[in-house]
Amino acid sequence: MASLRIAVFASGQGTNFQAIVDAVQEGKLDVTIELLVCDKPAAPVAERARKAGVDTFLFTPKEYPSREAYETEIIAELQRRGVELIVLAGYMRIITSVLVEPFYGRMINIHPALLPAFPGVNGIGQALAYGVKLTGVTVHYVDGGMDSGPIIAQVPVEVASDDTESSLAERIHAAEQALLPSVIQLIAENRVSLDGRHVTIRR
């Protein structure tokens, strides 16, 4: 069976992108990374892609008249490469229906909290400020809302009484880098099914 063709969207350091690349290189992930999409051409993730030999679509949003305009261009790139799954891995832009609708059920995101708690930006800081004893990581389908799509998988991370945002982030990011490739592999093996808000994983 042919490898699942994926595109990764990222905006920053690219540690989750790197985790995917490493899993592919180690033979743990049966996908082909067709493209990195990045809205910040100078971001470190773009250099990670270059070193990994992954093609990039780098763009500056303010050079376009609207979100829909650059998303239309991105869709053309994805379709040209036969991309079957979009993986949002630290992509810090709001996504419109232009991109969501044609890829619904084929676009996933990783979020640094146990959704539906602490959606949006800085899920780690939100959890710490609220005083929860348990937070974690969620991989979910993207539905156009703010981290509101059907949940595929979650991993809990305990919050210590002396945690800082930095120390908690370190453990959250480690959990992200383990969970995201494993969920992508489940999808590549066709073991994940979506029915309304309910996701079933066949073991």
Rank of each mutant, 00 (worst) to 15 (best):
E26S: 10
D143I: 00
E176V: 09
V87D: 02
V21R: 05
G12L: 05
V121S: 02
L36Y: 12
G105E: 08
N190A: 13
K133D: 14
F103N: 08
V155M: 05
A117F: 01
T96R: 07
D22V: 10
E101L: 07
V157F: 03
F9N: 09
V137S: 02
G144F: 07
L88C: 07
A42V: 09
P116I: 03
F17Q: 13
V87S: 07
H111V: 01
Y70K: 03
G105W: 07
G82V: 04
Q25I: 03
L115W: 03
I152S: 02
T15Y: 10
R171M: 09
Y104P: 05
S148D: 00
D143A: 00
P181D: 07
V157N: 05
T56M: 10
E47T: 14
S3I: 07
L114N: 08
A89Q: 12
L194I: 13
A43D: 14
R67S: 10
R5G: 11
Q25K: 09
E189W: 04
V54K: 06
E63M: 11
D163S: 04
Q177H: 15
V45M: 04
M1H: 14
G53S: 09
D55Q: 13
P44S: 01
G27K: 08
I184H: 06
V21F: 05
E77F: 08
S166R: 15
D22H: 12
Y64C: 06
V159Q: 04
T138W: 03
E68Y: 06
E158W: 10
T200E: 04
S193E: 14
R197C: 11
